[in-house]
Design a protein around this nucleic acid. Structure first.
Lengths: 191, 191
DNA sequence: TTGCTCATGTAAGAAGTTACATGATTCA
DNA sequence: TGAATCATGTAACTTCTTACATGAGCAA
């Protein structure tokens, strides 16, 4: 049997609340799911084909706006079972690739004044995201999404992590901007 | 001129403190740099060739232990300048791919008892990482790494973020494990 | 009449993973 | 004698990105 890629499971996740077209999935993989799992259109359509072949999803066709048929995909029983089994498996440790941390590691090779400006900009960018997610979080909570019995509790829980995440980033970038100030006033021994 | 990939810059970052062999870089891309940027051996050796062709690094050869020569790579002036320029550029937003957040989004499709055990295991895993990074952080601080003039300040600053990051994850997973308890006692309306 | 949204797909290439290949030295 | 470390590289494959291609309906 063909093994399902994480992208495949991401699509099953996106379908767990009900049927969607490929195009709906393309949009979902931008936001909200795109906040923590992204895929492009060119990846999604072939993957839907593979999931269908594996019997995890099925679709109904209707006339589309363009030259091709519109397909509405849904989880099959096998798909729902595969998803349920995958959800409770420990995540395989993915390679972390975080550009800002990489830059911080080699921070000494850059000019401290420019580096300070860099961290101030990054702090502001993270703050904007934090504000936006805070707004979404508040709105969802007001609609009862903070209750485990609410269908959007999963989305609410991901927002909880986003708040923790971005608040931490803002704090860290601000701290580093501050520290770059030290580097300006007391440069390394060699001058 | 050929554009340098992020992997290329990661290698320049790794070389910013002094010359290293390809093998040294392979180890660095596991740890400590591997904590925030990973690459395999089969990616690193060809990339070194490209950086060399671009004039950003140069190497000296010496007899190696095996059938091939041992090469010690170092940044050229052009390489150091390219690195300094890249460091202060805003990071391009990379596609986030976080399996545990994806699973949380679709959490309702899994059994709450199993899901609770899942989050407890994840909390414990993150706690172990937090303990290890706390140990490293304390050790580096004791050696003066917390000062911006210290050559390992960059590594120290990355550990600062690691502590923020993993402490947040432990808190979030513990909270979710708790909430899965709610799901057990009050299941969704449909039963 | 130009551009956006809906809607589905393919092609070419870059980036990343897994596996193979060689061979000396050191340690248990 | 068998495994680990040092040391460099290639081949085959999967995954992901960028770009192309079609065409209806709608709004400025």
């Amino acid at each position: 049997m063909a093994t399902i890629s994480t992208l495949g499971y991401a699509l099953l996740c996106a379908l767990h609340r009900g049927p969607l077209t490929g195009y709906d999935l393309v949009r979902k993989m931008r936001r909200p799911i795109g906040y923590y799992w992204t895929a492009r259109q060119s990846q999604i359509y072939p993957e839907l084909g593979r999931l269908s072949e594996a019997g995890l999803i099925a679709h109904e066709s209707s006339p589309g706006p363009g030259p091709r048929e519109r397909k509405t995909h849904r989880l099959t029983d096998a798909g729902r079972a595969a998803l349920a089994a995958w959800l409770v498996e420990p995540p395989g440790d993915r390679a972390p690739r975080d550009e800002i941390v990489l830059k911080t590691y080699a921070q000494a090779a850059a000019d401290p004044v420019e580096m300070r400006a860099f961290y101030l900009r990054e702090a502001a960018t993270y703050q904007e995201l934090l504000d936006e997610f805070t707004r979404q979080h508040t709105e969802l909570a007001a609609n009862g999404g903070d209750s485990t019995s609410h269908p959007e509790f999963g989305a609410y829980a991901t927002l909880e992590l986003a708040l923790i995440h971005y608040a931490g980033r803002v704090r860290w970038c601000s701290w580093l901007a501050d520290r770059m100030g030290d580097r300006v006033t007391s440069p390394p021994p060699e001058g």
